[in-house]
Design a protein around this nucleic acid. Structure first.
Lengths: 348, 348
DNA sequence: CTGAAAGCGCTTACAG
DNA sequence: CTGAAAGCGCTTACAG
């Protein structure tokens, strides 16, 4: 690292060829003579030449980089049992792994940026990111529909919350089918006649969909649906725990089954129920959504709806790449299948 | 996204000014007239202009991007209890969070890349990454000293394993002091007379250091040290579990205290000991190293040595930034303090 | 305060 | 097969 790093001109000079030849052997284009090749490669090795990606990106109009923006987990209740749940690998992280795997296959790199829950200048940060990549993959709860569409007019954007705007594409799991199967299992197979929906973040599209299906299925079957602000959770264990705590504290009886917006909420619910000596699934059945790794390790085993999490990420990348390369996304709203996973917490 | 995205020329034309003026108002340099400012900003908004980071990087010779390379967790024994431990947030992830926080403060973005345990062309991947950023932060177990030094001649490199070469800098926790305090606690405060060291990856610098301290302290105190290939773990729970399984299977008595190379190994050891009905700390004391979040949730609570994990990441970034900007790293080898955390697993 | 112009380090038609 | 040259989209002295 003494002085300025070598450029393609230095390599060309050292090899006694033109910069065009250097570029060709390094990129494997054209058919350079063996001798040319050797001299270039030798010079490259000697000088420790690393081609400048910015210069290439400027020239070919492609950075081969995608930006991923996800929401940092909000701080949980201080001192609570789940105070450190933000330090567990969750849904978003598995998606990111899927993105990375797919990106690597295409020679793309990942620019990762997390934004705090209520980040005022998330917009600015996003623009700064956008400058450095070819397109953005935006997780749930980062931007609302309006912000997303605006961003989509400036740069290719794929959203992971199921929000599809005129200028953006999206990838999501099939919440409708998954939740429908789950509800019918609880109602028909187990015969539960009273259900509560432990909500995720209120305006998250997935939450809206899942609640709607729960409501519709309960209504169609004449099943009682517990509702109200006290059922409002957060998608996190901490929120699920608080909902149960509140319900129990109010002294009102719990419904026969509690359908949670996602696995983390179910984890919090399960934990709190256990602490209060409520038997699951004997007294109350509990279900999740996502099938994240911890779901498999809970006791009782969590009945949930599996989403193809890593595949969601991989698909988001592929969609974005087609957007970047062709301008138009092939399908605009990709929906990946989900599947009911019956374990013990539902009563099975 | 219709046609080519607007450039600074389009903005200048729309605003009726020169591209130099556009650049100045966007970067807050010079003192543009209010009128100029307004017209530029209006044109930017109208066109949805996002300046090209590659062009800027080429011009200012700074990408404001750092690359982070970490090692993907190797697959654990199929079907084992810890088969999915790679899906838990661990040491490396917390470090990465620290890097991101510090990078964000300086306006840098993070290019993240994971390499598989035995990745033949990790080198090539690394070079590809290097093209796109100003410097690289390389986690433990990714490159050996030779590869690291070679890389360091091509691009600024900070290593997180404590390997300092002529061309690279490093950041690490103080394993010596931490392990010394821990050993003395076990020997002096608890009076244990026989100790085993459950090893991490054999040639990892931290492992080498920790083992050396354990050996030295045991020797100095006349404490018996169990050793041999059967004590070879992997830094992961799976490895720790296998070591204990092997020891127990061989029917030989366990030492009074098992000092594990890190928390994850201790986690595996704890789990396996419990499965075999061995009382910890009654029959055998167990300790870890790192103080990762799960350590606090184990039963019994894990006695360990706390590393300032997130700070290791933040410091690595700061060191790299100074390397990038000044060419010379200020301190070449930064050692952050560690601290003994006594919980129950040591017998306290 | 503002603009014309050079320069950053590559890639890629275009000639030869 | 190879080289001279233009061009990618910015920033920044340098004049005015």
């Amino acid at each position: 690292m003494n002085g300025a790093p070598p450029t393609i001109y230095d390599v060309a000079a050292a090899a006694g060829v033109s910069i065009a030849s250097v570029s060709r052997v390094l990129n494997g284009t054209g058919s350079p003579r063996a001798d040319t090749r050797d001299r270039v490669l030798r010079a490259v090795a000697e000088l420790g030449f690393v081609p400048d990606g910015a210069a290439r990106a400027l020239s070919v109009k492609l950075k081969e980089t995608v930006g991923v923006v996800y929401r940092r987990v909000p701080k949980a209740t201080p001192g609570g049992v789940f105070a450190e749940e933000d330090e567990n690998l969750q849904f978003a992280d598995i998606i990111n792994r899927g993105i990375e795997v797919a990106a690597q296959r295409s020679g793309f790199s990942l620019l990762i940026s997390s934004v705090a829950a209520a980040d005022a200048d998330a917009g600015r940060r996003m623009l700064a990111l956008a400058r450095k990549c070819d397109g953005l993959i935006v997780h749930d709860l980062v931007l609302d529909e309006g912000q997303l569409d605006r961003l989509g007019r400036q740069i290719p954007v794929v959203n992971l919350a199921g929000i599809t705007t005129p200028h953006t594409a999206s990838v999501r799991g099939d919440s409708e089918a998954g939740m429908r199967d789950l509800m019918r299992h609880l109602i028909r197979d187990h015969g539960y006649a009273a259900v509560g929906y432990l909500s995720g973040v209120a305006d998250s599209p997935d939450n809206v969909t899942r609640r709607a299906v729960v409501t519709a299925e309960a209504g169609a079957a004449g099943v009682e649906l517990a509702a109200g602000p006290q059922w409002q959770g957060s998608y996190y264990a901490d929120g699920g725990a608080q909902v149960i705590e509140g319900l129990l504290g109010a002294g009102r009886p719990l419904p026969r089954a509690i359908v949670c917006a996602n696995d983390l909420a179910a984890l919090g619910a399960l934990h709190t129920l256990a602490r209060h000596g409520v038997d699951v699934p004997g007294e109350v059945a509990v279900t999740g959504f996502d099938d994240i790794p911890v779901a498999r390790r809970l006791h009782p085993g969590l009945t949930t709806v599996r989403q193809p999490i890593q595949e969601l990420g991989a698909t988001a990348f592929e969609l974005l790449e087609s957007l970047v390369r062709n301008g138009q996304p092939e399908p605009r709203d990709v929906v990946l299948p989900t599947r009911l996973i019956r374990r013990e917490s539902c009563g099975c």
